[in-house]
Each structure stands twice: as C-alpha cells, then as structure tokens.
C-alpha cells in the first residue's frame, strides 16, 4: 500500500508541478492535465507489465514524458494560442453586435443627428464616423487573424502565433476604447446634456463599457498567457 502511494506521488507531483506552471482557460488546463495523468498512468501500467515495480514504472513514465519545464513551455504555447483564439472570436462577434445594438437604440430613442435643432459640427461627425469604423475594423482584423491563424497553425512557431494574436487583441481593444472615449469627450464638449438625454441609452452605454472592459481583461490575460512562454 505504502509503495503504491509513493508511486502515485511521483505522478501527482509531476502533474501538480506542471499545472502550477500553466496559465489559460481553466477547462483547457484541466483537459491537458487529465490527459497527462492518463498518459502517465498508461505508461506506468505498460512498464509494470514489463516487470518494473510500481515506483520504478512511475519514475520511468515521468522521465519519458519529458522535463517538466520543457513540457510546460510547449503546453503553455498551445494554451496561449487557444486563449488568443477565444479572445479574437469574442472581438469578431461581440464588437459589431454591440455597435449595431447601440446604434439601433440611438436611432430609436434619440433619432438621427439630422433631427437635432442644430447639426453637429464637422469635427464631431468625423469623430462619430471614426468611432463607428473602429468596431468594424477591430472586428474585421480579429476575423482575418483567426482565419490566418488556422492556415498558419502548422507552419509557424506556436509561441510567435500566440504573441501576434495577443498583440492584435490588445491593439483592437485599445482602438475601440480610444474611439469610445473620444466620442464621449467630444459629446461632453459639444453638449454634455446629450450624454444623459435618454435613460435607456445611458444604460446601453454602461453595458457597452462593461463589455469593453471585459474584452480588455480578456486581451490582457491573453498577453499574459503568451508572454510567460520562454
């Protein structure tokens, strides 16, 4: 019994050490560790069948699996790419939906800009137009990155792809953030009362900001996952 427990400790220690070095989606990390444990258990059984003791078999299995630092590095690169992919999918889908919902709400509750007593100045319309474009552009870039990432998956270094994905996510969220801050500051400068003209739109704007912050956190974690890979 004691020998078996000692043997199990070898695999437990390896899997725990590996898990402590990984960062990414909890489900993906759990899946990888479950697969690792399965593989080590299978290898142990095979070595026991070949005549090794449980303890020796466990140690051989762990040794064959590879140095934990090296394996963690390879696992982490895949986890970083997976996290980057997830973030880019969010950006590609959520940004245009959020923008369309906000614009539809504005048209419904406030009306087109032409309906105002005075037409907003050209500089304001330029900022509004640029802000409109940021969501579409960020979403488009995310979509292109996802498609290219699939084609380049085998030909390019996983660590490099993870870093490029994270950089695209950070820049995309940064541009959307800048666009939203610009339009709010411009509106406040032009006529601050417009910012609180419609209560439902204030709520919609607050939701937009929650989504942007959420996307920003995803992008930041994406970068963190990609940069801990050596």
């Amino acid at each position: 019994m004691g020998a078996v427990l000692t043997g199990e400790d070898v695999i437990d220690r390896y899997v725990t050490d590996l898990g402590s070095r990984l960062q990414g989606s909890k489900k993906q990390v759990r899946d990888l560790l479950t697969e690792t444990r399965d593989s080590l258990t299978d290898a142990t059984e095979a070595h026991v069948d070949r005549g090794l003791t449980e303890r020796e078999a466990q140690e051989r299995a762990v040794e064959e699996f590879g140095p934990v630092r090296e394996i963690a590095n390879e696992y982490q690169a895949e986890l970083a790419v997976a996290y980057g992919t997830r973030t880019l999918v969010w950006l590609a889908i959520v940004l245009p939906l959020m923008h369309m919902a906000w614009e539809y709400g504005r048209m419904l509750l406030i009306g087109p800009w032409q309906d105002f007593a005075t037409m907003p100045p050209a500089w304001y319309l330029f900022i509004a137009k640029a802000n409109d474009l940021t969501s579409g552009a960020a979403s488009g870039v995310a979509l292109v990155a996802l498609i290219l990432g699939r084609f380049l998956a085998r030909g390019y270094d996983t660590k490099l792809l993870a870093r490029i994905g994270a950089a695209i996510a950070i820049v995309a969220v940064g541009v959307v953030l800048l666009g939203n801050i610009s339009i709010i500051l411009a509106t406040a400068h032009l006529d601050a009362s417009r910012l609180v003209q419609s209560s439902p739109m204030v709520v919609a704007t607050a939701i937009t900001w929650i989504v942007i912050v959420r996307l920003g956190l995803l992008a930041r974690r994406c970068l963190s996952c990609a940069t801990i890979v050596v």
Partner: peptide, 15 residues
C-alpha cells in the same frame, strides 16, 4: 519526450 505529443496534437487540431 512523450509529453511533446499532446501539444502537437492540439496544434494539428487547431489546423
């Protein structure tokens, strides 16, 4: 190292 097979399988899945 047998551990390198799993990231490679993930890479193939991604492709």
């Amino acid at each position: 190292p047998t551990g390198t097979v799993y990231p490679a399988l993930r890479r193939l899945e991604r492709a």
